[in-house]
Design a protein around this nucleic acid. Structure first.
Lengths: 200, 200
DNA sequence: TGCTTTCCATACAGTCCGTCCGTAAGTTAC
DNA sequence: GTAACTTACGGACGGACTGTATGGAAAGCA
């Protein structure tokens, strides 16, 4: 079968090809430094296809960003799902490890943490991020509050503060000379941070 | 006097005019969206002067970024200098307040936290930031370690984690609908965070 | 004052984004 | 099956922007 390609499959194929081609380019050289012609050629199509499938270069980047975010969220959800039955604080520690491991990949932290805020603007960046990574942190914090492991307080401010700590920790670890050592160090700092928050 | 302008003063005047003109433009529309011609016209010169004084658009942005960072650092150093004789934890609380107040200005947080990482790259961003805001946090953490108010640990990882928390807190507060409420909320979250770290 | 260096304005070349139009591939109606 | 229509795509054009090269004015120095 599949001798006759349907429109939907054509569209899906070209969009996927463009996203897959743009991802390493954006990650390597940044949003502004890579042109649409290079992306289209790498995807085996022309700029005409790109501008038919996406509203523009920024929209294509948003699609790449969403793909990366979805991968991280799925990875973290899987890791957190395993420890869901145990101590919520232990779950949080697992989440820290999973996050740092995911951001070790330059394709992740360069796109998610460096390029996306400027390319999409902070509001749109956070709006998308809230459906993925930020949303996970919110859920974990809410779980801790429900379990009485945190003093009563609004969820969102604490979640944002923790997200900021996690993001900068990931960049510090990923860009360090000795990444293994740096990862262990920031992990310890993050664990001390969250352990100081929770009540027995 | 001043009928006869010296070369040094000419250079200083044009550089200052360009930096002053570029600052609100970059803050309002972002690094990529504002052209060099618009900056030059706003400064009352031409692009020729811009490219004579700066290596390029990125270099001009770096100068703007350094100016903003220097202002924040001076402001925080003044606030922290007053409380230097008191409790180091109280000093840290004052630092949080000063930081949140400084980042309430869009010219600050848009340039420092959104545009700079992508425009300059993370390494250069942090290299400059370390001479200003990040360096202050490092000093405060080192002071807490010396005073025995923190369990022994490397300074840099904890400083970066705290900087990340502070940065995201500032963005959250600055972009919220109810900024006063959001500022109070993230301030409380940050205070709980650092209070959980220190030992009596 | 005459010469050199610094500072700056103008003109030019190269690149890149977004849009427009024509064509091909796929879908629906009869 | 084929005709009418919609969707996907390639190629080319126009506009904007960055960085550079060239010529002249202002300042430093003898």
């Amino acid at each position: 079968m599949e001798s006759k390609r349907t429109q939907a499959s054509r569209t899906a194929a070209t969009r996927a090809a463009l996203v897959a081609a743009a991802r390493p380019l954006f990650a390597e050289r940044g949003f502004a430094a890579v042109g649409t012609d290079e992306i289209a050629r790498a995807a085996g199509v022309t700029r005409g296809a790109l501008y038919h499938q996406f509203a523009g270069k920024t929209d294509l980047f948003a699609a790449v960003f969403e793909t990366v975010e979805a991968e991280i969220a799925a990875r973290l959800a899987a890791a957190l799902g395993d420890g869901g039955s145990g101590d919520p604080v232990a779950t949080l520690h697992d989440g820290i490890d999973g996050w740092l491991a995911a951001c070790a990949d330059p394709e992740v932290h360069r796109i998610v943490l460096i390029e996306a805020p400027a390319a999409l603007g902070w509001e749109r960046w956070r709006e998308i991020g809230r459906r993925y990574g930020v949303g996970l942190v919110e859920a974990v914090v809410q779980g801790l509050l429900d379990a009485g492991r945190l003093p009563p307080q609004p969820v969102l401010p604490l979640a944002h503060v923790l997200v900021g700590a996690l993001e900068e920790a990931a960049l510090f670890a990923a860009r360090a000379d000795d990444r293994a050592q740096a990862t262990a160090d920031v992990r310890a700092a993050l664990v001390r941070l969250v352990d100081g928050l929770v009540v027995p």
